[in-house]
Structure formats: structure tokens, C-alpha cells
């Protein structure tokens, strides 16, 4: 590393997963923090941590599609449902082991994603956004009203899964498989964009016609992007389902927008961004809730107005980030690092 930036002198060095020693140190610090967290956190914050873990997986999935490939999807909530329902139903109806059911659900979601991605071959930008919006409504309608799925009930409760002899009950035990999956998703996501596939996806985003002139098969890579992204989202959905109860309310349009907010706030086209964004957006309502509780004495009306307050802050955060830092938290992190590296100089 030089003081003006990170330079690569060979392809080997550019392809390395971690470029600098500092990155390695930070990675180990993060791993240790994640391992220690469940022993420090209170039950409330532990459940928040679990939700963050699941959100990280979904946000990485969405970022692969929207941030890296440039295909806007407003149907994230629907894809989560496509992961959650089959996984839950396979366990409840067929009695499959949870791991097998989840694996099948991930494969199934990837397949459905590829199918829904087919219109993306003909539609761009705004039109694709509206098409995925429609798929969101149609999927929610199906899981709410299709007798075969609902059997007349509004929710499906899945028996507590067993993993390596441990019954997964309570936030502490769930923490490990969730964080394990999130770590796996991060590693796969990070590596995907060091590979030819990942670079082809980014080429499709930047200039699809140029990409196809360079021999990137647009049909193949667009469908592939939908499939890979949906695979991640399916995993997040399956985890949501098994972690708590499966109900359609958890997969509505609001959820799609929440995930989009995660990758916008975090940074489009960045795995780190997806992680930071997921942390930020999940923490936001919980943080406000804690804040409201702590100032209850001074402003008693604040607890009653909490939902409105959370919603307004959410909207405002999206607007402010888009106007003032469109590249999100990942970029802010980059700038902070630069500031300290170059200190006491400005550049």
C-alpha cells in the first residue's frame, strides 16, 4: 500500500480477496465481534441481531440483481415468500429435515426467479420495476388465497428444527446458523464478483450493448443474475420462515421497499454496502423505539406516535441518502478510511 491508494501491479494481486494488511485485521476484528456478540447482547438486541443476519443475506441477493446487474426489482418480498412457503410446507407436510427443505426451497426460488427474470430480457428500467411490482402482488395473492398452500389458515407454524442435536429454539441458538448463513452469503457474494460471471453481470449493468458486443450473452447473464439473486433471497426467506412463523404479512410490498432501502443506503453494487445497509435499516426502527422509551418521561406522546415516527424517518433517510450520498454507507466508510490514512493532509 502506498499513501495515495492501493495499486495493483499484476492480475494476481488484483484478484486477491483482501488487498491490504489493514483489511485482514479489520476482518478478524469483525469475526471476533460477531462471535462475542451473543454473550453480551440483551435478548431484545439479540433478536435484532438475528433479523440483521437474515436481512444481510437478502440484501446481498438484491444487490447482486439491482446493484451489480442493474435490474430493478420491486418484488423482493414476493421472492422471500417463494423461499419461505415451500421450505415450511416441505417440513410440515412431507416431514423432510429442515436443511433438505431449505436447500430445495433455495433451488426452487432460484428457478422461480429465473422465470420471473424472463420478462427482463425484453424490459428495461422502469418497465421492469413495474413488472416486478406486479409479480409481488401476484405472489402475495397466491400465498394468501391458494387453498393448496394455506389450507384455510393465515399462517403456517413450522416445528422447531434440529441441527447437530440442538433444537433451534430461542434467539441465542438461532444466532449461530443465521450468522453462519450470512457469512456464507457474504463469502459467496464477494467471490462471485471476482469471477467471470460477476464481471459479466457488471458489464450488463454498465452498458448492455457494449457487453453483448464483447461476447457477453445477455440472455444468459440476465436470467442467471435473477436466479443467483433469488437463491440468496430464497435462503433469507426460508430462514425467516423457520426462525419465526410463516405469514404473508412478512412478505408484503413494504418489505420489498425495505430491502431496496438497504442497498440504497448501504451502497448499490457493493457487498459491504449490502451488509452496512441491512444493519442500518434493521437498527433504525429498533433504535428509534429505544430512544422513544428513554425520552418517554419528557415527551409522553412519543410512544403513541412511534410507528408514524419510524415510517417518516425511514422515508427521510432514503431521500437524504439519495440526494446527499447516492453511493451510500460503503462510500462514507471509504471516505472515513481515506481521511485517517492521509491525516493530517486533506488529500
Amino acid at each position: 500500500m502506498t499513501t495515495t491508494g492501493v495499486y495493483h501491479t499484476s492480475y494476481r494481486s488484483e484478484l486477491r480477496l483482501r488487498h491490504t494488511r489493514a483489511e485482514q485485521v479489520r476482518l478478524w476484528a469483525a469475526v471476533i465481534l460477531i462471535l462475542l456478540l451473543p454473550f453480551i447482547l440483551s435478548p431484545f438486541w439479540l433478536s435484532v441481531a438475528n433479523r440483521i443476519g437474515i436481512a444481510v443475506i437478502g440484501a446481498i441477493g438484491l444487490n447482486i440483481l439491482t446493484g451489480f446487474t442493474g435490474q430493478i426489482s420491486l418484488g423482493q418480498g414476493g421472492f422471500l415468500a417463494v423461499g419461505a412457503y415451500p421450505s415450511g410446507l416441505l417440513v410440515v407436510r412431507l416431514g423432510l429435515p429442515t436443511l433438505v427443505a431449505m436447500f430445495l426451497a433455495v433451488a426452487f426460488t432460484a428457478l422461480v426467479g429465473a422465470l420471473i427474470g424472463l420478462p427482463a430480457l425484453r424490459l428495461k428500467g422502469l418497465y421492469l420495476a413495474i413488472a416486478t411490482l406486479a409479480s409481488q402482488f401476484i405472489i402475495i395473492y397466491l400465498v394468501r388465497n391458494w387453498e393448496f398452500i394455506t389450507q384455510g389458515r393465515d399462517s403456517i407454524s413450522v416445528p422447531r428444527p434440529e441441527l447437530f442435536g440442538f433444537v433451534l429454539i430461542g434467539d441465542f441458538r438461532w444466532y449461530w446458523p443465521i450468522m453462519g448463513s450470512a457469512a456464507l452469503a457474504t463469502i459467496v457474494g464477494r467471490n462471485l464478483f471476482r469471477s467471470g460471471i460477476g464481471r459479466a453481470l457488471m458489464a450488463v449493468r454498465d452498458q448492455d450493448i457494449a457487453a453483448s458486443a464483447l461476447g457477453v450473452n445477455l440472455t444468459k447473464y440476465k436470467v442467471l443474475s435473477f436466479a443467483i439473486s433469488s437463491g440468496f433471497v430464497g435462503l433469507a426467506g426460508a430462514l425467516t420462515g423457520h426462525y419465526r412463523i410463516i405469514t404473508w404479512e412478512r412478505f408484503e410490498l413494504d418489505v420489498s421497499i425495505e430491502y431496496l432501502a438497504m442497498i440504497i443506503v448501504g451502497g448499490l453494487g457493493s457487498i459491504l454496502g449490502a451488509i452496512l445497509g441491512a444493519i442500518f435499516i434493521v437498527l433504525l426502527p429498533s433504535g428509534l423505539e429505544q430512544l422513544a422509551i428513554s425520552v418517554r418521561g419528557i415527551f409522553p406522546q412519543v410512544t403513541a406516535q412511534l410507528p408514524a415516527l419510524q415510517l417518516a424517518t425511514f422515508g427521510l433517510v432514503i431521500i437524504l441518502f439519495l440526494i446527499f450520498e447516492p453511493r451510500g454507507l460503503a462510500r462514507m466508510w471509504q471516505r472515513t478510511k481515506d481521511y485517517f490514512r492521509l491525516w493530517p493532509f486533506r488529500y
Binding site: G70, I72, L126, I264, L311, A312, F314, L316
Partner: peptide, 15 residues
């Protein structure tokens, strides 16, 4: 990009 413009109006709607 289109996604940013869409999201800013969604943010406004929420607000």
C-alpha cells in the same frame, strides 16, 4: 439511475 429516482419518490411517499 432509474432505481435512484424511483426510490426517492418511494421515500417521499413513506414520508
Amino acid at each position: 439511475s432509474a432505481i435512484s429516482v424511483i426510490m426517492v419518490t418511494i421515500g417521499l411517499a413513506f414520508f
